[in-house]
């Protein structure tokens, strides 16, 4: 046996990845620029806001050298609006809109690499790392929130509502089908992964004979193996 870990990432690993998200802080002390692997960090000048990685922000917060500015979606107003959306509509609330493509570069940024948690993030959508980031900020810097208890309560409500939705999603699955998971966050994927893959595996096992029969039929009808392969690819979507 190799590592006794399930496939996918464990919650501490997901939280570790989340720590590279940029957050906005108000420094209380000067700090010279740092050369980090993710790029140079500008010097911190006390009254000016700065965007730094979450791990550094947590460190400075613990040393009382900075205050964290919670992202706008982590306010009671926008959280309750999103919670209302989640409870009334069957789909997950949409992820933040992608920014316009930067011209001239071939790099296209997708959700985990967007500044979704700085002070100028959108207020009406949950970014990829919403649950991890929200819990960590609430734990490390509750006094930087206007109403930490309310935010905590809303986050818990959101989590419950969305996990229930994710679990109900398997009822529409079939052996070759998919469930729409747009807007589902990193921690939620990590939590639901084993369950959803387990259900798909079980359904495939039950439907195996039908799949074999279909492949047999296709072969008799003169499909070439390459087309057969394409067919499998289609099923994965």
């Amino acid at each position: 046996m190799a590592l006794p870990l399930p496939p996918g990432l464990t919650p501490p690993e997901i939280a570790f990845i989340c720590e590279m998200e940029l957050v906005t802080i108000i420094p209380r002390q000067r700090l010279e620029g740092l050369e980090l692997l993710g790029g140079p960090l500008k010097p911190l000048n006390p009254p000016q806001r700065a965007s730094i990685p979450l791990w550094l922000a947590l460190l400075l917060k613990r040393q009382r050298r900075a205050n964290i500015v919670p992202p706008p979606w982590l306010s009671p107003d926008s959280l309750s609006a999103i919670l209302k959306y989640e409870t009334e509509i069957d789909a997950f609330s949409p992820p933040p809109r992608l920014p316009p493509l930067p011209s001239g570069t071939s790099l296209v940024f997708s959700p985990p690499f967007l500044p979704g948690s700085t002070a100028d993030a959108t207020a009406d959508a949950l970014p990829y790392h919403w649950l991890e980031l929200g819990s960590m900020l609430l734990e490390a810097a509750p006094e930087d929130f206007d109403d930490a208890n309310e935010v905590r309560k809303l986050l818990r409500g959101l989590r419950e509502a969305r996990m229930a939705k994710l679990r109900q999603g398997v009822e529409v699955l079939d052996a070759g089908g998919g469930v729409k998971m747009n807007g589902v966050g990193g921690m939620e994927v990590g939590e639901a992964r084993t369950f959803i893959t387990g259900v798909v595996d079980g359904l495939r096992k039950i439907g195996k004979s039908r799949e074999e029969a279909r492949k047999e039929r296709d072969r008799e009808n003169g499909y070439s193996p390459s087309q057969d392969f394409d067919d499998d690819e289609m099923d994965m979507r």
């Binding site: 399930p6 464990t10 501490p12 734990e139 990590g190 639901a192 369950f195 387990g198 259900v199 079980g202």
Partner: peptide, 23 residues
Amino acid sequence: NERQLFRASHDSAKAVRTWMTDL
């Protein structure tokens, strides 16, 4: 099969809960 499924989803839910309390 269903027992394995239960165990898997129970373990992942527990892992997230443990992480939250460890915070």
